[in-house]
């Protein structure tokens, strides 16, 4: 399916990049192999301006109101939210585990930081994911180059600032290569 290119409308404030929203959901009993992952992930729309973002976002369910095993992904247009994508294959992600009840607020803040280009790491950011699970929720931010420590440190420090994380929050960095090896996202 060919999609119409996304562009800002008259009078709108353009974003540095266009972003695409994806949604996925699976039953925990089903194995998370690559094929079922790709089949489960649904493209839900793209935005090119601040105004398009709000229009789109305000119609979405807040992640804290989702149930079961589901994920929202927002990635730069052209990057699939998969380890195998060219932009992700040498990359990794910061993982922040959140107790139940915090996901919606942290999700909105991490999106605003990404759309507003607050991370200052050039082209490195690929996208963000919120993962709703049974015991806890998980926020991740993916970048292109896992072994670039200047970049990953700057992303971590920016996250601490923009999310105003509680002092006891544990942040872990995981390369997608390691996720592939142990067949586990977190």
């Amino acid at each position: 399916i060919r999609r119409k290119p996304t562009s800002p409308g008259a009078g709108e404030h353009p974003l540095q990049y266009n972003y695409t929203f994806w949604y996925s959901r699976r039953t925990p009993s089903r194995p998370a192999n690559t094929q079922s992952y790709e089949q489960n992930i649904k493209h839900i729309g793209s935005v090119a301006s601040v105004e398009q973002f709000w229009k789109f976002y305000s119609h979405l369910v807040r992640p804290g109101d989702l149930t079961g095993h589901s994920d929202f992904h927002i990635f730069k247009e052209g990057i699939k939210p998969m380890w195998e994508d060219e932009a992700n294959k040498n990359g990794g992600k910061w993982i922040i585990r959140l107790r139940k009840g915090l996901a919606s607020r942290f999700w909105e803040n991490i999106i605003l930081a990404m759309l507003g280009e607050q991370f200052m790491v050039g082209e490195e950011i690929c996208g963000v994911v919120v993962s709703i699970r049974f015991q806890e929720d998980i926020l991740s931010i993916w970048n292109k180059t896992a072994n670039d420590q200047v970049t990953t440190s700057r992303i971590r420090d920016t996250l601490r600032r923009v999310l105003n994380l509680p002092p006891n929050t544990i942040m872990e960095y995981k390369t997608h290569n390691d996720s592939l090896k142990d067949n586990s996202s977190f």
């Binding site: 409308g9 601040v50 105004e51 973002f53 709000w54 507003g116 280009e117 607050q118």
Partner: peptide
């Protein structure tokens, strides 16, 4: 090139713009 940077307040202020409805 120039980067388009928006702070959180700027983005939140656009939320209720007629263009965002």
């Amino acid at each position: 090139g120039t980067r388009i940077i928006y702070d959180r307040k700027f983005l939140l202020d656009r939320r209720n713009s007629p263009l965002a409805q």
